[in-house]
Amino acid sequence: MKRKFIRHIDTGISLYQYNDIPVIEAEHAVGSAKITLQGAHLLSWKPAGAQHDVLWLSEIEPFKAGSAIRGGIPVCFPWFNNAGTPAHGYARISLWELTSHQIAPDSFQLTFTLIHEKQTVATLTMTFSADCQLVFTNLTGQEAQIALHSYFKVGDIHRTELLNLPNSAFNSLTQRQENVPVPRIIRENVDCIYSAEAGATIIADKAYQRHIEIEHQNAGDIVVWNPWHKTTGNMSESGYQTMICVETARIRRPIHQESVGVIIRVK
């Protein structure tokens, strides 16, 4: 990957180019973050003092303009999966604008705005402190689906458990509602949709000796995905071993003029 400095934006905030993609890099006392302007896509969040990134990013990601990025937190909007073209919506492959930013001693905040066909259709605000919070707002005036398609980095998928999920989920591979084990241990290709009423989802990452807590705000659905050995674009054959997707979403009950958010904590 070619990384090229473009310009400084403010103290600790700079714009770079990763191959074809403009990327904001932020360094602060509370930690660091990297966000692409294509998709307002959070690539990396590393809290101060953390040994490992919280988010997973494919080591073979080509950063090609107009192509979805494998890893981080893509924004799937205004539809999910194959409900329209392109898959997972246009938001993740469109250029967003950094429209405001704030820096405080104990936090920093970035707000991105998406304009599509001359209309402001969405905003995404990211606030970084001891936690990481993303708040997405639909401004289209129409119902839409949204998923914050979060890829979390784990030390070893074989030593990872998902806690505080319901014991039933819709299996997208079989197209059936099924009973599932609690806690959930991933041992195969998994693509399922849970109801979000159970509260925060916890990733027990035993290899890295940490818990990642994912608080879903105004969500209806939680998507859990790992492709296992299935060939997946821009992912190496071993990539599945160090990632798990736990997505904050509104798929079955679309959003109108409202926001959906996620707060991520590491303990």
Rank of each mutant, 00 (worst) to 15 (best):
M1Y: 10
R3V: 08
R3A: 05
R7Q: 13
H8F: 07
H8G: 04
D10K: 15
T11C: 09
G12S: 08
Y16D: 10
Y16L: 14
D20F: 04
I21D: 04
P22A: 11
V30E: 04
G31N: 02
K34R: 10
I35G: 05
T36F: 11
G39N: 14
G39T: 12
A40S: 15
G49E: 05
Q51T: 15
H52P: 03
L55W: 06
L55I: 08
E59K: 07
E59T: 06
I60M: 06
E61S: 04
P62K: 06
A65V: 05
S67N: 11
A68Q: 02
I69R: 00
R70Y: 03
R70L: 03
G71L: 01
I73E: 01
P74T: 10
A83W: 12
A91G: 08
R92K: 13
L95K: 15
W96P: 04
L98Q: 11
L98S: 11
S100F: 10
H101N: 14
I103S: 09
A104Y: 03
P105G: 07
D106C: 02
D106I: 00
L110R: 05
T111I: 01
I115V: 15
I115P: 04
K118T: 10
Q119M: 14
L124D: 09
T125F: 14
M126V: 06
F128H: 06
F128W: 08
F128P: 03
S129R: 12
A130C: 04
V135T: 08
V135N: 13
F136A: 05
F136N: 01
T137L: 10
T137D: 10
L139K: 13
L139C: 10
Q142H: 13
Q142M: 09
E143V: 05
Q145V: 04
H149L: 00
F152T: 00
K153N: 12
V154K: 02
H158F: 08
T160Y: 03
L163N: 10
S168T: 06
F170G: 00
N171L: 03
N171E: 05
Q175V: 03
R176F: 14
Q177P: 01
E178H: 01
N179P: 02
V180W: 13
P181M: 06
R184K: 10
I185V: 09
I185K: 14
R187M: 07
E188T: 11
N189W: 13
D191R: 02
I193D: 02
Y194V: 00
Y194G: 00
S195W: 07
A198K: 15
A200I: 00
A200F: 00
A200R: 03
T201C: 04
I203W: 14
A207M: 09
A207Y: 10
Q209V: 15
Q209K: 15
H211S: 08
I212F: 15
I214E: 05
E215P: 02
N218E: 15
I222F: 01
V223F: 00
V224G: 02
W225A: 00
W225S: 00
N226C: 13
K230N: 12
T231I: 14
T231N: 11
T231D: 15
T231F: 06
N234D: 09
E237H: 12
G239Q: 06
G239M: 04
T242A: 08
T242R: 11
M243Y: 00
I251P: 04
I251F: 11
R252V: 07
P254A: 08
I255W: 05
I255K: 02
H256L: 11
H256M: 10
Q257L: 11
S259T: 12
V260K: 05
V262D: 07
I263K: 14
I264E: 01
R265T: 11
